[in-house]
């Protein structure tokens, strides 16, 4: 489908709301708020994740807050449950987030299994998803790249499933494209790769596989030049999406095919 020629919009639709950008970015690990703001602007992302944390009591009373740098009227703020190890803590955190963001329903659920791998605890994730969906939250769920888990999250009413490409913050790229492919083929809600992207080609490959979007934080924030990497990721996601929609040529591992005419050369034909 030539979306450029037809003028049709190729939007990512999550919980009924369209987004022009398929790149979602985190806001952690930046040097300061100015770098955060510039990188996120360069990424073109419309959905940005934030964490919910205790405020420092009696300190830094006058300092700016993240939501002044990333105003919720300009960005869709996606509160996460990073650091939660139980369904109960994740649900509490997101109830606080909803109050903080004045009734905002779209959330990123992640329930971690252990502090070393940050691998998701899927039984707790499923339990939390069930409660949250019941309370009217629109849940985007970080999950293992297990197709059955992804299907169960969808059946519970999650608005997107977000399997890991590799461990959070590892930058190891997509270590199991085959599992991702199964999830993409079998799940109807948007599938976003969340975690493990290291560089632009990883993001492009995720989109070429057919992912609906990519969520990343460290790959941008911990690049030598985060603002430039943010732009690279924007272009990679767009390039990967276009390549997916264009439909790649078939792979022909044992058969070369010249691009220039065979006839009319000034050299003898072999």
């Amino acid at each position: 489908m030539d979306t450029h020629a037809t003028g049709m919009k190729d939007e990512l639709v999550i919980a009924g709301k369209p987004y022009a950008s398929r790149l979602l970015v985190g806001t952690g690990k930046y040097r300061d708020f100015d770098e955060t703001r510039r990188a996120i602007e360069a990424s073109g992302a419309q959905i940005v994740t934030v964490a919910i944390r205790r405020t420092n009591i009696g300190q830094n009373a006058g300092e700016p807050s993240l939501l002044e740098v990333l105003p919720p009227d300009r960005y869709t703020i996606l509160p996460n449950t990073a650091g939660c190890y139980t369904a109960q803590d994740a649900v509490r955190t997101l109830r606080l987030a909803r109050e903080l963001l004045e009734g905002h329903a779209l959330v990123k659920l992640e329930v971690l299994g252990d502090a070393q791998s940050l691998y998701p605890n899927m039984p707790e994730t499923l339990a939390a998803a069930k409660t949250l969906v019941g309370e009217g939250f629109e849940v985007m769920a970080y999950c293992s790249d297990d197709p059955i888990m992804a299907r169960q999250l969808e059946e519970l009413g999650c608005v997107a499933v977000m399997p890991l490409a590799s461990l959070i913050g590892s930058g190891m790229g997509i270590i199991n494209p085959w599992n991702l492919q199964i999830i993409i083929d079998r799940v109807k809600v948007p599938v976003l790769v969340d975690a493990g992207i290291g560089t632009a080609s990883d993001a492009a490959i995720a989109m070429e596989l057919g992912c609906d979007g990519v969520l990343m934080n460290t790959a941008i924030a911990k690049a030598q030049d985060p603002v430039r990497m943010a732009r690279a990721m924007k272009l990679a996601v767009e390039a990967g999406r276009d390549a997916r929609l264009a439909g790649r040529m078939p792979r022909k591992p044992y058969e070369a095919s010249a691009s220039s005419p065979q006839a009319g050369t000034i050299t003898p034909q072999l």
């Binding site: 952690g28 934030v50 964490a51 919910i52 405020t55 993240l66 703020i77 509160p79 109050e99 959070i168």
Partner: peptide, 30 residues
């Protein structure tokens, strides 16, 4: 004590002895 205190009730609701209170904000995260 594990329950949200809605902003609309800040002016009337009061803390009580033994309360466990959490005050949270949004911070950078992924």
């Amino acid at each position: 004590n594990g329950e949200i205190v809605p902003r609309s009730r800040f002016a009337e609701a009061a803390i009580a002895d033994g309360d466990n209170i959490e005050v949270v904000i949004a911070v950078g995260g992924g």
